[in-house]
Amino acid sequence: MRTEYIKVGVGKVGSNTVVHVEQDTQFVLDLGDQDCSFSVIFQKSGVKAEIIGVYNLSGGQKIKLETFAVHKVPHTQCFTYIKGVLMDNSESDYKGKIIIEKNAQQTNSFLEDNVVVIGQNTRNISQPILEIDADDVKASHSATTGRINPDEIFYLESRGLSEEESQNLIVEGFFASLLGRIEDERIRDKVKEKLNV
């Protein structure tokens, strides 16, 4: 699968980036700090796409993101993975839509949104949406928001790490599972660098 690093919503408020999937592609989102929207439209049968977005927000940062997976023809696949970490006073607002139109039988579409809250005074809005007009499809989504399990921190502390080190290690692991999906090494490194964990 081809990997593309796509800049969304930098500089412009409410900018919408739309792509039509022509061949199997991984879209890795380079998220801006303002409203951004990214749409993947399937008009060619037999193609597969992945949308990967990660963010790590610290003091006072905000992110507003929308993704759309629009299936118009049969036999397409889309997997959307969004992962984020919220530190003190940060805010994330994510809406992820899967739209499967009437003709788009044998679609397989999945969306996952995981948020780990580390700081205080955070706000998180999550709206995973499904609109399905075809019957022979598999569509699902899951969304979670939660803190790091204190048992995990305790375990790492018992092995000699400080609280901060333990936290960083867990956050690194949280992102690593998704970064590992990115097939292009150069892009993976860029995303890692930007995440700054």
């Binding site: 989504h141 899951s142 939660g146």
Partner: peptide
């Protein structure tokens, strides 16, 4: 918070 949905 956990949310999960499937359509099949």
């Amino acid at each position: 918070i956990e949310h999960e949905a499937t359509v099949s």
